[in-house]
Design a protein around this nucleic acid. Structure first.
Lengths: 217, 217
DNA sequence: CAGTGGTCTAGACCACAGG
DNA sequence: CTGTGGTCTAGACCACTGG
């Protein structure tokens, strides 16, 4: 890392191979391998068999965001968490939602709309679709004592997922719920999780005005 | 992973120790260690000396965002990249900016405002402060052929940084630059990078309307 | 204080892909 | 074909920390 930062090894340079580095540092190749492997994972090195290890020319910044359970996030700030289910229905989902979830048109999903509150102030508004084939127990869960967010984390594992961030203008409904002016700029997270080939849930969370998400590089 | 996903090892459970798993799978402990270490890094396991390894109760979702050089991002979509420097000045920065960068009030920084275009359409607006003590060569760089973004990546390494995402309402200036209505909801990234103890640059990038950032879980 | 993970070693075989 | 990284092994010592 020092040699990369001080430009002793410049962007694009090939660095010595593992055997040579092990000799230079007087350690086992395994140790060099682990160090280089971990640096490569941060995106600063590019490793290829036979071609060797090179310092990446234009490292792509990678930021790891932790997306905690909303209750925990609020409680971690010393505030009281509460949530209100605003709608709970089993109905045919719009084709856009079904398409993204890889489900046939006409499939019925559980739809939940809920508001998360911190010290009784609106914190985030959640609009969720749940695949009842993957999570059948959700059919009988009222989600009044436990949020859908948390219930799903506890009850239905997922193997992979996608997240996207965007900015959204507050609609009338959301402005009402989040107690802001219609048209306010709000941060939104869309999240789709999968259990193997099956979509588990699709959720859009819109945060109250001024919300920020932090990460370190 | 299978045992976690199928709930054979449930959230909160302590799993067998490395020696036992090595015996069960007929492999070396080193191999078990690496597997568990890598799973733990994804947040599904919690490992503590003496206390053992446990399945995390409420795994915190971790999303890795790649924040590429804007030019590359645009070119990757097959569009033509161009940028325009709209302002370039060396002046005393506002105290808010200096405070975040850990610099004394009254410090002069290089300020750059630039517009990034994809196929001549506004893509993102950038407002940047550069610490000339860390990157003195920036004083003589016009940033007309290469964006500040890219120049800094090539010329000044950083050791760590912070990023935050938020939604911003388009100001008059930004609405003009990005060709949208004032008050539109826009996604903004604030980024602060450090080289050891010294702040390198602080930048706020506001993307054109509708921009999304994607990541996988 | 003792059980657990954290790390290192010296060596081996292998997979891949560049030349 | 061969240099490189990828992975595994069997063993060792150690650091931490829970009981």
């Amino acid at each position: 890392m020092r040699r990369i930062n001080t430009r002793q090894w410049k962007p694009g340079d090939q660095i010595p191979n593992e055997v040579d580095l092990a000799a230079e540092f007087g350690c086992a190749r395994t140790t060099v391998n682990r160090a280089l492997r971990e640096i490569a994972k941060t995106g600063l090195l590019d490793r290829k068999r036979k071609a060797g290890t090179r310092v990446v020319e234009q490292p792509i910044a990678r930021a790891v965001f932790e997306i905690p359970i909303i209750r925990k996030e609020i409680e971690a700030r010393g505030q009281a968490y509460r949530h209100q289910v605003q709608q709970r229905a089993i109905s045919v989902a719009p084709s856009g939602v079904l398409a993204r979830m890889g489900l046939n048109t006409g499939t019925k999903l559980l739809r939940l709309k809920a508001l998360h509150l911190a010290n009784s102030h609106p914190y985030a508004y959640e609009d969720r679709w749940v695949n009842l084939h993957v999570a059948p127990e959700a059919r009988d869960e009222p989600f009044d004592t436990i949020s859908a967010n948390e219930w799903l984390v506890l009850n239905t594992p997922y193997t992979n997922g996608e997240v996207s961030f965007s900015a959204a203008s507050a609609s009338k409904d959301i402005a009402d719920a989040l107690n802001c002016d219609p048209g306010s700029a709000l941060l939104a997270i869309d999240r789709l999780t999968w259990y193997g080939p099956d979509a588990v849930t699709h959720v859009r969370i819109v945060f109250a005005e001024g919300h920020q998400l932090h990460a370190s590089l």
